[in-house]
Computed example of a mutant assay.
Amino acid sequence: MGKVVLVTGVARQLGGRLVRRVLRDPEVDRVIAVDAVEPAHRLDGARFIRVDIRSPAIGRVLAEHAVDTVVHLDVTGTPLGTGGRTAVKETNVIGTMQLLGACQKTPTVRRLVVKSSTSVYGSAPRDPAVFLETTPPKSLPSGGFAKDAVEVEGYVRGFARRRPDVAVCVLRFANILGPCADSPLAEYFSLPVLPTVFGYDPRLQFVHEDDVVDVLRIALHEPRPGTLNSGTFNVAGDGVLLLSQCSRRLGRPTVPVLLPAVTWIGTALRTVGVTDFSPEQIRLLTHGRVVSTARMRETLGCEPKFTTAETFADFARAQGPGLLPPHSMARAVDRVGERVRALGGAGRDPEREDGRAADAAARSDAGQGA
């Protein structure tokens, strides 16, 4: 008999993709797909069961189908359909509590994979240049999806202590992007004009949705020789991008806002439909965040196919042209920056210069390709 895998959150594109991919694995016998909402996409040969993980019914599903592997994807920052932030938080936190309680009572469960986020590290001015899995945050996130992720991981650690016989894998994904990305940051980058925090140009990391599916698939199987698929792992593509580079490559102008007015940014963006643009998201766009992925490669045995820059390029292609052509946008920003430095006598900023050099190289490559 092969594995019996239960996947939560299958009504979203990511969950549907994982289900279809896992069904092709020869080691998997059956896939049980659960969600509170009927998925609009196909699930091929998976058995779909409409159940809210916040209800005790999830325990009956686990027991009835003798599930041995649980992949918990129903931890997200955006609502599905008309649900608001309150419904999202309840599913993230209360749903996880209910699911873990059901797993604890189900003796057949032997492996648990949980989708988390690098947002658990927060974003602060004195953060280390690179976060390791063991690096404590300078200050815990105070709200939004980041706080949900911190609470979820706390409950998962408690479950691991109560069921030491279960292999628990927590995957802290960087911001997920791609043609079908569904995240607060994807919503932000989809705006025609990007509000930014004046005087800050944060470093950002991304992970492609294709790589997310591959990493989840690796984590739910038995580890290969020399690897281990239990524990906590940062997952991100190689390299970083500055926010200014992202706006140029999208062809979207930015509107810098003074730091004391950052609360207004979140309120305004929520008004136009960016659901979880919490203070934590604003801090990310102020201070940025970069994580080490060495453990993902060396211990989990996973190598993402897309770098951060390639991930963003794929996302940008799906977005279509911005208000301004990227090369015109880059020239305009460079001219303004040079004028400001000339008038203000600003000193050198190596990080910004590196970012401009990288953009210049990218534009050169684009010109040669054209």
Results as ranks from 00 to 15, higher is better:
residue 249 R to E: 12
residue 337 G to F: 10
residue 252 R to T: 04
residue 327 H to E: 14
residue 48 F to R: 04
residue 224 R to V: 12
residue 129 A to G: 03
residue 311 T to V: 09
residue 47 R to Q: 15
residue 266 G to I: 02
residue 147 K to D: 02
residue 31 V to I: 08
residue 268 A to G: 05
residue 234 N to H: 15
residue 287 H to K: 10
residue 95 G to H: 01
residue 166 V to D: 01
residue 44 D to A: 13
residue 57 A to I: 06
residue 81 G to P: 10
residue 146 A to S: 13
residue 210 D to L: 10
residue 138 K to W: 07
residue 345 G to Y: 07
residue 28 V to I: 11
residue 75 V to N: 13
residue 360 A to Q: 12
residue 341 R to N: 15
residue 257 V to S: 02
residue 116 S to Y: 01
residue 269 L to E: 00
residue 173 F to P: 02
residue 10 V to G: 07
residue 347 G to D: 14
residue 251 G to Y: 02
residue 256 P to W: 06
residue 171 L to Y: 04
residue 103 C to F: 00
residue 167 A to Q: 09
residue 76 T to L: 14
residue 71 V to L: 06
residue 1 M to P: 09
residue 192 P to L: 00
residue 128 P to N: 00
residue 89 K to H: 14
residue 203 R to V: 10
residue 108 T to C: 06
residue 244 S to D: 13
residue 246 C to D: 07
residue 126 R to N: 13
residue 149 A to N: 03
residue 174 A to E: 02
residue 122 G to F: 03
residue 264 W to E: 12
residue 10 V to Y: 06
residue 25 D to C: 08
residue 99 L to G: 03
residue 193 V to S: 06
residue 87 A to R: 10
residue 67 V to N: 02
residue 348 R to E: 15
residue 59 G to W: 03
residue 43 L to W: 10
residue 98 Q to D: 07
residue 166 V to N: 01
residue 142 S to K: 12
residue 201 D to P: 02
residue 301 G to M: 09
residue 159 F to G: 00
residue 122 G to Y: 02
residue 284 L to Q: 05
residue 266 G to E: 04
residue 212 V to E: 11
residue 141 P to L: 00
residue 19 V to R: 00
residue 217 R to G: 15
residue 216 L to S: 07
residue 221 H to D: 13
residue 3 K to R: 13
residue 277 F to L: 09
residue 278 S to H: 06
residue 16 G to Y: 06
residue 142 S to V: 13
residue 332 A to F: 13
residue 187 E to T: 06
residue 86 T to K: 12
residue 315 F to I: 06
residue 87 A to Q: 14
residue 286 T to P: 05
residue 37 V to G: 06
residue 51 V to D: 05
residue 292 S to V: 02
residue 22 V to N: 01
residue 127 D to H: 09
residue 200 Y to G: 06
residue 255 V to M: 15
residue 236 A to G: 08
residue 9 G to D: 09
residue 112 L to E: 00
residue 14 L to A: 10
residue 104 Q to L: 15
residue 65 H to D: 13
residue 109 V to Q: 01
residue 205 Q to S: 10
residue 330 A to D: 13
residue 163 R to D: 01
residue 336 V to G: 07
residue 175 N to Q: 10
residue 238 D to Q: 12
residue 190 S to I: 02
residue 142 S to M: 11
residue 32 I to P: 03
residue 274 V to E: 05
residue 87 A to T: 11
residue 142 S to N: 09
residue 34 V to E: 05
residue 286 T to M: 09
residue 57 A to C: 07
residue 367 G to F: 14
residue 309 A to E: 15
residue 178 G to W: 01
residue 260 P to V: 04
residue 206 F to W: 05
residue 145 F to R: 00
